[in-house]
C-alpha cells in the first residue's frame, strides 16, 4: 500500500482536507516515525490520528489508555524475557517454546503500543523498574517453575480484564479499538495456555476462570479474580441457562484501572 495514494484518494473526496491538516507534507510527517514491520498495521491508527486532528476530536484520552496498556505490557514482556533466560522453564520440554512465544508477543505489544501512542501525538511512558517477587511474596518466581506459572497466569488473566475494562474508552477510534481487541484476545489465548500448562502439572484449574477461583494460587492473587463470579449479564440470569460454574466461566469480567493498578503495584519497585 502507498500512503501517497491514500492521501490522493482523500483529496478526491475532500478537496479541503489540507485546510484541516495544513499540508500534504505535514500529513506525511504523521507517518515519518513508522519503520519496519510495525508500519503497516499502525497505518490505520495514524490515519485515525490524522482525521481526529483534521476534524477536531482529541486523542489525549486514547493515548492515555494506550499508556496504561503499555505499562502492563512492559510488565509482561520483562517477566517472560527474564523467565525465558532464567532457566526456570524446564529445558527440553514444550514449555520452552510456549514461553518464548508468549515472550515474543508481549515484546511485540510493547513495540506496537509505543508506535501507536506516538502516532496519536502522545508520549509513551517509560518502563518502570519491576520486582517480580512482589516484595518477597513470590520470592522463588525465577527458580520455582510452579511459582513462575502461577505469576504468569495472574498476569495474563489480569491483562485480559484490564483491556476489557477500558475498551469502551476507545469506542471513538475504530483503528485503536480494533488493535486493542486484537491484543486482548491474544492475552486470553496466553491465559488459556498457561492455565492448561498448570493443569497438566496437577493444578486444579481449567483454561477458563470458574467463579473467582485462583486455581490454587491462593489469597496473594485473589484481587485478580474477585468479580469473576458474576453470573448475571445485562440483566439475564445465566445460571438459569447453564450451571453456576459454567455461567461464570462463559463471561470474563472487566477490571477498573484502580483495581488493576492495585494488583500491579506490588510488582513495581518504589
Amino acid at each position: 500500500m502507498n500512503i501517497h495514494n491514500i492521501l490522493t484518494e482523500i483529496e478526491k473526496t475532500d478537496p479541503e482536507v489540507y485546510d484541516r491538516l495544513d499540508t500534504r507534507r505535514n500529513a506525511m510527517r504523521s507517518f515519518a516515525s513508522f519503520g519496519g514491520k510495525v508500519a503497516l498495521a499502525a497505518i490505520p491508527l495514524a490515519l485515525g490520528s490524522m482525521f481526529k486532528k483534521a476534524y477536531g476530536q482529541t486523542t489525549t484520552g486514547i493515548a492515555g489508555v494506550l499508556n496504561y496498556a503499555l505499562t502492563l505490557e512492559y510488565l509482561e514482556a520483562e517477566f517472560y524475557t527474564m523467565g525465558a533466560s532464567s532457566g526456570v522453564v524446564p529445558a527440553g520440554t514444550p514449555a520452552v517454546g510456549a514461553i518464548n512465544t508468549i515472550r515474543d508477543h508481549e515484546n511485540a505489544h510493547v513495540a506496537f503500543l509505543k508506535t501507536a501512542i506516538s502516532s496519536l501525538g502522545g508520549t509513551a511512558v517509560s518502563k518502570p523498574t519491576f520486582d517480580f517477587t512482589a516484595g518477597g511474596a513470590f520470592g522463588n518466581v525465577f527458580t520455582n517453575y510452579d511459582t513462575f506459572l502461577a505469576v504468569a497466569q495472574t498476569f495474563e488473566d489480569t491483562g485480559v480484564r484490564a483491556y476489557k475494562g477500558r475498551a469502551a474508552e476507545l469506542i471513538s477510534n475504530n483503528g485503536v479499538l480494533t488493535a486493542a481487541l486484537q491484543i486482548h484476545s491474544v492475552e486470553a489465548r496466553h491465559a488459556s495456555h498457561i492455565r492448561y500448562m498448570r493443569k497438566n502439572r496437577g493444578a486444579n484449574v481449567k483454561p477458563w476462570i470458574t467463579g473467582k477461583d485462583t486455581g490454587g494460587i491462593g489469597s496473594a492473587v485473589q484481587a485478580s479474580y474477585d468479580g469473576e463470579e458474576l453470573t448475571t449479564q445485562a440483566g439475564v440470569n445465566i445460571a438459569q441457562i447453564v450451571s453456576a460454574n459454567a455461567a461464570s466461566e462463559s463471561f470474563d469480567e472487566p477490571l477498573t484501572a484502580t483495581q488493576v493498578l492495585a494488583i500491579v503495584n506490588p510488582f513495581i519497585k518504589k
Binding site: 517454546g97 512465544t101 484476545s185 491474544v186 488459556s192 495456555h193 492448561y196 477458563w208 470474563d252
Partner: peptide, 29 residues
C-alpha cells in the same frame, strides 16, 4: 461493546485450548 469483550476472551480461551488439544503449543501460533 463490553458485553462482546466479555465473550470474546472466553472464545479465545476456547480457541487456545482446542489448538493445544490438536498440537500442544499451537495456542497462538
Amino acid at each position: 461493546l463490553v458485553l462482546a469483550g466479555k465473550i470474546v476472551s472466553v472464545e479465545a480461551r476456547h480457541a487456545a485450548l482446542i489448538r493445544d488439544l490438536i498440537s500442544n503449543g499451537s495456542f497462538a501460533d
